[in-house]
Structure formats: structure tokens, C-alpha cells
């Protein structure tokens, strides 16, 4: 049996005496797709960010374990659980080296996730420089990254404002996978896209991850999308919000 890329168990996060997420298990294996679903406010993004070691100091990690078995056997939450904001900040710094070469995160709303002041080419270069194995030819790597997501080469000179919604989403995906991570976390890549673009970007995401043999943790609202791609589904229970 292949080792898991991400194995998070019993994640419970508390804020002012209320559990924001409780006893969440997330397992992602290489080459597989795991979908994280649930209503707004159920803690999808919170759980996904916690799985990268990002826990805001204002909230409190009260139980759980986080392992990246493909990398090592360390439990990253060891000593962090119930240890307060300082320990959580320490975790944030310790896991910084993982983000990029091992795990990458593609946030919601691609257009706002890209840096508006830098060309796409420069943003790709910065992601490529975070690869575990350094690359000799940066320009060539940028062109390959653009080819991979089906963007024209001249898009590397464009600012995010010059790209359409669909192109922005592709660009964000290119930046997310440019660092050659083994695990990609895509937070609602379909947000703001029409149904045809949603299908296109979801298929692209799956294809790129399959080609790279990396695991994908897909946060999604859409039952149909998740059913079509045959992902393992983790459903988070909703919380009472008006």
C-alpha cells in the first residue's frame, strides 16, 4: 500500500469556547483526489489550511495529529495542541519549508489570489524557485508551466488584470503547480466561473495532478463536479448560521 501524502486525524479547532471544526480526518494519497465538501462556515478552508500548518493565532488547536507520511513520520501537531498562539506561530514557521516544494494551495477567487502588480511570468518564476530541485533554465520552465495549463506564452508578460476569468483561474493553477508540489489543495476553483469553465478548469486540475502523480485535495460546493471526477468525499457537518 502506498504511503499517504497527507494524514490528518481528529482535527478540532476551537474559538471562544465554540468548536469551529471537530474531529475531522483527512487522508490524501498520491495520484488520488479527495473532495472536501460541506456548507459555508463548516470549516472547509480552515481544515485545509490547518493541514498545511496554517492555524491563525486567534483560534485554538485543541486536538489532532498531522503527518506527511511520504516525507517523514513526524507528527507536526505534537507540542502544538492546546499550547496556544505562540506554538501555532512556531508551527507556521516550521511548515513554511513544506509549502511550495511539498504542498501548495490555490485559494478561492483566482483573480484576487494573483499579485496584481507582477506579471504572470514573474509570479511563475517565483513559484519555480521554490522547487525542491532547482532549475537551470527559468524562462524554459515558465514556458512549460504555461503549456501545461494551456495558456499562450505571451501570457507571461501579462498582468492579472489583462487576463479573463478563465485565464486567471488557469494562471493560478499554473502558479500552484509550478513549484512541483506532491500535494495540491484547490479551494473552490469553480468560484465565480460559469458551468462550462468550471468543467474545463476541474478537468485541467485533475489532468495536471494525474500527470504529475500528485495528490489533490479539492474543496468544492458542487455535488455534480465531485461525482463526475470520482473523488473520495469528506463531508463536514454544517453549523447553524442564519
Amino acid at each position: 500500500m502506498s504511503k499517504a501524502l497527507l494524514d490528518m486525524r481528529g482535527l478540532t479547532i476551537n474559538h471562544n469556547g465554540r468548536n469551529l471544526v471537530s474531529e475531522i480526518d483527512i487522508l490524501v494519497e498520491a495520484g488520488s483526489v479527495t473532495a472536501l465538501m460541506g456548507p459555508s462556515g463548516s470549516g472547509k478552508t480552515l481544515s485545509a489550511r490547518a493541514s498545511m500548518g496554517q492555524i491563525h493565532p486567534a483560534i485554538n488547536l485543541t486536538s489532532g495529529s498531522l503527518r506527511f507520511p511520504m516525507r517523514d513520520d513526524r507528527d507536526w501537531f505534537d507540542g502544538i495542541v492546546n499550547a496556544g498562539p505562540k506554538a501555532q506561530n512556531r508551527l507556521l514557521h516550521e511548515t513554511a519549508a513544506l509549502r511550495g516544494p511539498y504542498v501548495s494551495y490555490s485559494p478561492q477567487m483566482a483573480s484576487s489570489a494573483l499579485n496584481p502588480g507582477r506579471t504572470l511570468g514573474r509570479q511563475l518564476e517565483m513559484a519555480i524557485m521554490r522547487r525542491a530541485k532547482s532549475t537551470d533554465n527559468l524562462a524554459m520552465s515558465v514556458r512549460r508551466s504555461l503549456d501545461e495549463v494551456g495558456l499562450p506564452h505571451h501570457a507571461s508578460r501579462a498582468l492579472p488584470i489583462e487576463l479573463s476569468g478563465g485565464m486567471c483561474q488557469r494562471a493560478a493553477l499554473a502558479v500552484a503547480v509550478a513549484s512541483h508540489p506532491q500535494l495540491v489543495i484547490a479551494d473552490e476553483p469553480e468560484t465565480g466561473l460559469d458551468p462550462v469553465l468550471t468543467r474545463g478548469i476541474t478537468e485541467l486540475l485533475i489532468r495536471v495532478c494525474k500527470e504529475r502523480k500528485c495528490g489533490l485535495l479539492l474543496i468544492s460546493h458542487q455535488d455534480e463536479t465531485v461525482a463526475r471526477i470520482g473523488a473520495t468525499i469528506i463531508r463536514l457537518p454544517g453549523v447553524e448560521v442564519v
Binding site: 478563465g166 460559469d194 458551468p195 462550462v196 468550471t198 468543467r199 474545463g200 478537468e203 455534480e224 463526475r228
Partner: peptide
């Protein structure tokens, strides 16, 4: 038809 059932038809070039 593509717009209403995007998963039932080939992916368009756009």
C-alpha cells in the same frame, strides 16, 4: 445544451 449539461458534451475549445 452544453451550458445546461456541461459534463455531457465534449469540452469546447472556446
Amino acid at each position: 445544451q452544453l451550458l445546461f449539461h456541461p459534463w455531457d458534451y465534449p469540452v469546447p475549445e472556446g
